[in-house]
Design a protein around this nucleic acid. Structure first.
Lengths: 260, 260
DNA sequence: AGCAACTGTATCTATGGGACACAGTTCTGG
DNA sequence: CCAGAACTGTGTCCCATAGATACAGTTGCT
């Protein structure tokens, strides 16, 4: 719970004079919200809300109508309170979004004590993460730029890094591998949104791109050829599978080489 | 030039009833702006602005102060006109951003007639793209979600796909490879922003993460170990180099296998 | 019982995107 | 050559959103 105790050091203007080093006040707030502690008050009326309910309300709205629709007003209305009531729990919109992201991504589902090799583990992990991002497409735009990671996100990282235990990769390399996979998940999620809920592989973006190529194709000969041949291939999960395999292959090359 | 001719079919409310298939009116506008034709008017006073100047004004502001600061007001002020003057050239904010993105990414620099192998070509291409994204970090958040590609972006795709000519990969696979690399560039750009302009590898995010691990490290043993060992590694370009090599290695595996 | 702490709300401001009407400017056709 | 058509730039309005602040109602501790 936020418990702002009245005034809190909120920097108003666009934080133009924010120092580079050290934790800015806003960051400290986000850390408190995401990681606790959430000492609940003893005096006063019982709070009608809590951070989890607020986050879930925002997630429902964003899932249905996109992140832009998850305004303070709509989230509050969804909870049956007024906009300003939310500010008792959350210092601002940015912090609300941070909560929504960590709640939506959630903790990594517990492993079922399987003892696969690193490759199977990482592949399953990536597929699970992809599923999460597909369920919450708005999470993509809510996670651009540097930000404070929440316990949910960190648990995913933990899982990926630990899957690479005993592979001969050092700590930085294990982190880099996880970052690489996350990048692919994000990249494909972005592409996949173009196809929309209908599985049509030649939807919106495809048709616009097609029109463009018909008109300006001469300027992009290689692309024209590639698109023509791609039109006969199978659906929108192809890019996902392709990239996933390539990354895992690339990791395998390094790991095999370390093994000798 | 926009030449809106007065009324244009701008959908106001948040476009809730937008069909999935077919080009929405807004998309058609963006295509016209990005790809032309830009028939310039014969009658009336000479326009004082043009799309290119507007886009570059927006880019300068976004480069300096971030995308959020590139409001219609500031862009207009930067050009010495009022906000509403811009609407004579651009139907709305979204279209302005689309113009900024394509102008900032620009056309791919012409190849110097070198005849390297696919791997060197792709590596150079990825490094060039990375440079562009580092110069315009706001381009990341301006390119979330499906959108219409401009001639600049398409020329980059063209270059990547043509680098893979003669590798035995089919059209879809060549596109997928390019998408994979773009995903990595974007992922690393996002991480790199955390380090800030100072090359300090243990800046903002690092220190926050460090604090978190000191307090909650027990919950993330593998991550704690990885971070400890990563702290002794060399700087923030490591993740970029690592991922780039892995992807190219992974592509090489497939291409070699196709070659037989 | 009464005070302190806390919650929920009404009202106000600032800012941004955008609609619209209008005045000024310039080209074209008769 | 001149009148109207076409076009540009601008002032004023509206609406939505984030947020500040003051205040009234509620509850538990002493």
């Amino acid at each position: 719970m936020y418990r702002g105790h009245g005034r809190f050091g909120k920097v108003k203007g666009k934080a133009k004079t924010e120092g580079v080093v050290g934790m800015s006040g806003e960051q400290a707030e986000v850390v408190r919200l995401l990681w606790g502690p959430h000492a609940k008050p003893t005096r006063g009326p019982k709070p009608t809300l809590d951070l989890d309910r607020i986050a879930r309300a925002g997630i429902e709205i964003a899932d249905a109508d996109g992140l832009a629709e998850a305004s303070m007003q709509r989230v509050a209305a969804h909870l049956g309170v007024t906009k300003m009531a939310l500010y008792r729990y959350v210092p601002g919109k940015a912090e609300l979004v941070a909560l929504m992201v960590d709640a939506a991504i959630g903790p990594h589902p517990e492993r079922k004590a399987r003892r696969d090799g690193w490759r199977d583990q990482l592949e399953e992990w990536a597929r699970q993460l992809f599923t999460v991002f597909r369920q919450h497409p708005w999470a993509l735009e809510a996670t651009v730029g540097p930000r404070v990671l929440g316990p949910g996100e960190l648990s995913w990282m933990e899982r990926a890094v630990s899957a690479l235990d005993g592979t001969g990769l050092d700590g930085a390399e294990r982190m880099d591998a996880a970052v690489l996979l996350v990048g692919h998940v994000r990249g494909i999620t972005q592409q996949a949104r173009a196809a929309g809920p209908t599985g049509d592989p030649e939807a919106q973006l495809g048709s616009v791109l097609g029109d463009l190529m018909r008109e300006h194709g001469k300027r992009f000969p290689a692309l024209t050829a590639a698109l023509a041949s791609a039109a006969r291939s199978n659906g929108h999960d192809q890019a996902w599978e392709f990239g996933l395999r390539r990354i895992l292959d690339g990791l395998a090359v390094l790991i095999d080489q370390r093994a000798r």
